[in-house]
Nucleic acid binder design. Structure first.
Lengths: 214, 214
DNA sequence: TACAATAAAGAGCGTGTGTTCGTTTTAATA
DNA sequence: TATTAAAACGAACACACGCTCTTTATTGTA
């Protein structure tokens, strides 16, 4: 016959959600899980058994995990990986020269972040800063960063990154009627470069461009 | 005079590191921190006081945090914020038309991720897809994404995003000797557009470009 | 060899905390 | 109004576990 009861009977699911939210916040704030009594205090439930009932419900719903007997042994069942990154990274290379493996770690200046939904895979891609105005006709300016997909062949007309002797350059690959190849600068001031497979090598195909100005 | 002692006295720092690593692994595996006794069992220390000493040392080193009295109340002091994003985001806009505030949420198609160290601030920046070939002379192609810094004035020669009547276009702003302004397409096939401030408005200045091809 | 400092062990106290059980209140239904 | 199930309360038990104190072994130094 006590009149000290003050709670209002609430919807189970709502209370459950409140408990869950409290746990999430608590862990976010403190780095470890709350105790049953702390949860009760936090959400306004006076009995540990009530809270405990909600916890069992949350376990059944597969929203949390508890280890029987252990203290504060509540862990969240995260949807996927919470640390999951939502961007892709491609290595930004320094100067590319012959001899060195192009993706050698010493050659990587930094990692360049790209939106994740841009390319199916950035596995074999890298970025490189373009020097010179030889490709202005292909809308590639001095200082631009080009994204290159690593491959050693290319079709006629594709803009490629090629190794000419000891230097890497961006040029358009042209295959003529006789099956001969040449590298063409998209700038009338530069002459075509015959492509002899001996000391020339295709490093990749340009598949993107980034231009950042102040 | 007991000969059951089996431990070898180890370097403090090494043991400390072992304890720390165990805690990190344990939390990674279980989602909550280990108890002092569990740590001891895990790293091969038989006394809780020994483990406790290492824990206090780790607290002093500011590598973990503990709450006095609470069980399993160990939290890692992450370097910075683990959830910290290391990229910037700019809104990618759909079609820009007159009347609507340019950065209205309904107008934002998605968020575009950029490397964080590219711009001092991306606060007033947005991205827009360019349609048409009117700016090929400025190395801006059909389908490119331009990054625009929001501002309503610009210098002569700057590439701007301008609202012409009901449509937004990218053009070069030219200020002639008499102080009159006009918008110039970087393509001989297009004529200059006189700039009358009545129905023309500068929305921003182009400060970057992204081109993604398959 | 003696001495001090360090690291670990071992025992133990106090209590925070999970878990259970029975009771009480509320809200819905007949 | 009586009945019943859901939801909360409250008390109690048992022990996991933080924390301290004292003792023992190891290592370095004079």
């Amino acid at each position: 016959m006590k009149d000290t009861y003050q709670f209002t009977k609430a919807n189970v699911d709502e209370t459950c959600d409140t408990v869950y939210d409290y746990i999430v916040d608590y862990i976010s704030d403190n780095g470890y899980a709350p105790s049953v009594r702390e949860i009760g205090r936090g959400v306004g439930l006076k009995s540990t058994s009530t809270v405990y009932g909600h916890l069992k419900r949350l376990v059944d719903q597969n929203r949390i995990e508890m280890t029987k007997g252990k203290r504060r042994a509540i862990s969240l069942v995260d949807e996927g990986n919470p640390m999951e990154v939502d961007y892709d990274e491609v290595p930004l290379l320094g100067t590319v020269t012959a001899g060195m493996p192009i993706l050698a770690t010493e050659n990587i200046e930094s990692m360049l972040k790209l939106p994740q939904d841009t390319y199916a895979s950035t596995e074999n891609m890298f970025a490189l800063r373009v020097r010179g105005d030889s490709m202005v006709g292909a809308a590639i300016l001095d200082g631009d960063l080009v994204l290159v997909r690593k491959q050693n062949t290319a079709d006629s007309g594709e803009v490629v990154l090629a190794l000419l002797g000891d230097e890497a350059t961006v040029k358009t690959l042209i295959r003529d009627d006789q099956g001969h190849c040449l590298l063409r600068a998209e700038n009338a001031a530069y002459a075509d470069i015959p492509f002899e497979s001996e000391d020339c090598k295709i490093l990749g195909v340009v598949c993107g461009l980034l231009r950042f100005r102040v």
